[in-house]
C-alpha cells in the first residue's frame, strides 16, 4: 500500500469543520472531517438528510468554505481562497452534476456543453474536448440541437454530465444526480458517471439512496457531520444491476 507521500490524492480534508450560525444558535454541519481521496476513485457519500454530506460536497466544489480545518484539491490548498479564486478553481477543476440538471434553458444541448468549454478556455488552452463527441458518449448524438425544454429529465441530466466532462475536470461532483429521475433514466445517468470514472476521472456522488452507492469504490457513511464509517466496495456493481 502506498504511503501518504506516495499517494496521488486529489482530495485532502484535514479536520474540516463547518458551523452555520442561525440567529443566536450555532449549528455544526461538519465536524473535524479528515478525508483523502486518490485520483480516479469513485466515492459515494451516503447519510440521512442534514447529515452534512452536501456541506462536504459544497466545500470540495468551492461553493462553501470551512469554518476550521484545511481543504486541498488537486494539490492546491483552497482553504483561504477568495471568491474570485474559487470561481477560477471551479472553472478549471470541478465538474458539477446537479439534482435539477441546471442547464441553461436558452442554450441547446451542444451549446450547454460548449459553454463550459468556453469558460475553461478563458484563462488558458481550451480543453481538447468536442461537445458533439461528449454528447454522443452519453447517448445524445441525435439531440445536440435540442433545447432543454425539448429533452426529457434523463436526457437533460446526461447533457449535464457531458457538460461536467467538457472542461476535463480533475473532480466530478454529483449531488443527488438521480434524485429527480425515474429508475430507468437514473441508471442511464449513473452509467454515464461510471463511464467517466472508468476513463480516470475522480467522482464523488452524494446520495441518500444506499443501493445506488454500491456502484462506487468506496462508500462514506456520514451522520451528524462526521464520517462514521468508510466502506470499501470490493466489487462495485454495474448500474444495470442496481435495483432501487
Amino acid at each position: 500500500m502506498p504511503t501518504p507521500a506516495e499517494r496521488d490524492d486529489v482530495v485532502v480534508l484535514e479536520s474540516a469543520s463547518k458551523v452555520y450560525r442561525m440567529g443566536e444558535v450555532d449549528i455544526p454541519a461538519l465536524r473535524d472531517v479528515d478525508l483523502r481521496i486518490p485520483r480516479g476513485e469513485f466515492v459515494a457519500v451516503v447519510g440521512p438528510s442534514g447529515s452534512g454530506k452536501t456541506t462536504m460536497l459544497n466545500m470540495l466544489g468551492g461553493l462553501d468554505t470551512p469554518t476550521h480545518g484545511r481543504i486541498e484539491v488537486d494539490g492546491v490548498d483552497i482553504t483561504g481562497y477568495s471568491e474570485r479564486q474559487l470561481t477560477l478553481f471551479r472553472r478549471e477543476k470541478i465538474g458539477f452534476v446537479f439534482q435539477f440538471f441546471n442547464l441553461i434553458p436558452t442554450l441547446t444541448a451542444e451549446e450547454n456543453v460548449q459553454f463550459a468549454i468556453e469558460l475553461a478556455s478563458r484563462d488558458g488552452e481550451p480543453p481538447d474536448t468536442d461537445p458533439r463527441h461528449l454528447l454522443e458518449k452519453v447517448g445524445l448524438g441525435e439531440r445536440i440541437h435540442h433545447f432543454p425544454s425539448q429533452l426529457s429529465g434523463g436526457e437533460q441530466q446526461r447533457v449535464a454530465v457531458a457538460r461536467a466532462l467538457a472542461k476535463d475536470p480533475v473532480l466530478v461532483l454529483g449531488d443527488e444526480p438521480t434524485g429527480n429521475l425515474d429508475f430507468r433514466t437514473g441508471k442511464l445517468v449513473l452509467g454515464a458517471l461510471k463511464e467517466m470514472n472508468r476513463e480516470g476521472k475522480t467522482v464523488i456522488l452524494v446520495t441518500h439512496n444506499t443501493p445506488l452507492a454500491r456502484v462506487a469504490d468506496r462508500i462514506l457513511h456520514i451522520r451528524d457531520g462526521q464520517i462514521m464509517e468508510q466502506e470499501i466496495v470490493e466489487n462495485p456493481v454495474s448500474p444495470d444491476e442496481i435495483v432501487w
Partner: peptide
Amino acid sequence: REIATMRTIGEDT
C-alpha cells in the same frame, strides 16, 4: 438558479 449555475460552473461576476 440559472445565474447561480453559471457562477458555479465557473462564470465570473
